[in-house]
Design a protein around this nucleic acid. Sequence first.
DNA 1: TATCGATGTCATCTC
DNA 2: CCGAGATGACATCGA
Length: 612
Amino acid sequence: MGWESRLTAASADIDLIDILWRQDIDLGAGREVFDYSHRQKEQDVDKELQDGGEREDTWAGEGAEALARDLLVDGETGESFPAQVPGGEDQTALSLEKCLRLLEVTCPFGENAQFPADVSSITEAVPSESESPTLQNSLLSPLLTGTESPFDLEQQWQDLMSIMEMQAMEVNTSASEILYSAPPGDPLSTNYSLAPNTPINQNVSLHQASLGGCSQDFSLFSPEVESLPVASSSTLLPLVPSNSTSLNSTFGSTNLAGLFFPSQLNGTANDTSGPELPDPLGGLLDEAMLDEISLMDLAIEEGFNPVQASQLEEEFDSDSGLSLDSSHSPSSLSSSEGSSSSSSSSSSSASSSASSSFSEEGAVGYSSDSETLDLEEAEGAVGYQPEYSKFCRMSYQDPSQLSCLPYLEHVGHNHTYNMAPSALDSADLPPPSTLKKGSKEKQADFLDKQMSRDEHRARAMKIPFTNDKIINLPVEEFNELLSKYQLSEAQLSLIRDIRRRGKNKMAAQNCRKRKLDTILNLERDVEDLQRDKARLLREKVEFLRSLRQMKQKVQSLYQEVFGRLRDENGRPYSPSQYALQYAGDGSVLLIPRTMADQQARRQERKPKDRRK
DNA sequence: TATCGATGTCATCTC
DNA sequence: CCGAGATGACATCGA
């Protein structure tokens, strides 16, 4: 990937990060939900759920089709709900208190965390319609209805994550292939793809209700419910758990009064199915799924490669020796810029010790301590010799020094082009015919060929000092040196040109190195951003998963509680006529659906207005 | 022979 | 204003 394209990708990454956080905020999640201790707990719960959901695998066949219909029917709530509840048959199920405790214990938001403030999203989520009168096999299953597309986005995300963790495999697999290949048979996947319905006995008429085993020492009505015009003691039935603090601790003070309000009355859309229990969280789940979709789109559009991301993540986590951090490299921006920015001071400080070694003065900007060669003997040395770096794509070695290293001979360039014929003192070059084939002469010839144009010129003009001095001496010492000799105007002009070109040559080398370092640092920034992006995506997936688990638990508790309600005649309440509602103080109320709908609509407007 | 990377050089600007 | 450094543009070489 070119660094230019990476730059654009980096800006997109920043945007993505922003989008991710905003989505999380919209979902009402604080950042504490990304705490790994929370997630660890959620993963444990996830395993339990998978174990419990396996029996629903047989639903996979018709489930997808039903799901597609559900999505078409109600894009807002996106939820269908079980048509019936097995009456009072399941009397041995968990007690309400136990259910609520379960909810509390497994709540991934932590003790002090609050439910999303966007209550309407939860309120909307309560389904009121069902497309299928099918009896349910599980209490959990109704939660899953209609919220997942046939593609099973959650499963795709899990695939994405698993692939990211596999890291080394399937490098050539495209993101889209990964995202849209949901392997069959996954318990979780099939679990969420199914839409079985909870049967509910609808033949209930009641004005009073009681819940066996519930204590009475809890507040009966929430302020919101009391303010309702229809509210009366005969219709508002307190359903208070024996341990309301668990509920409070779970949901805090957040207004969840409408949590279990169905958005519509049941039984209006399906004559055969009868009323159903609502899914209190379907809308929220829909929102989350939409986020997932948009995220996946982003991932695909931005060319996000999960495998690459995982590799980057591994790099980020392992802090291996292969780290791209060039701060340890002499070519790093920090070191190079530091030396570069202090070049003037180092030059001036070097001038104070110039008498000891000219090589120090030559070390303008990018010299290294390893430079120990006597540059006075190496004409044309420009004093730039960084350590070898794997990022150093260009060689800045001094050609005259490299010439002493045959294996690096190819690095040195002898740019003697543009040299005026007069400048090339061919007389100084011994005729090849006169050369003995001795190694000394060979070397001399070789060094001669390695001389730069200015070196040849200097030799031709019989300049009495080395180019290195000409180039690297401070101005004062340079002028002093010139004053020591009787030099012609041509010689002086050449010396000044040599000095100018020599300095500019070093400057060009430093400039190019800085440019290279800048590119390398930008590439590293891009990689860092890609790691961040991958991490954020993983966190997003974790969050969505925990959110879904919470929804499942809340839904199952809702069903269980509602299914256990009995009127004074011992008959269950009709879900089409009554709904459960959480009050702010933790109490649970059974209220008529008309009230619930009103309240739900009221709460629905708030966040929408807020978003505008 | 064309191409490309590395390097040197010049012009110009900034400090 | 001068010197030095920085940098874009161009030229050249060599693989």
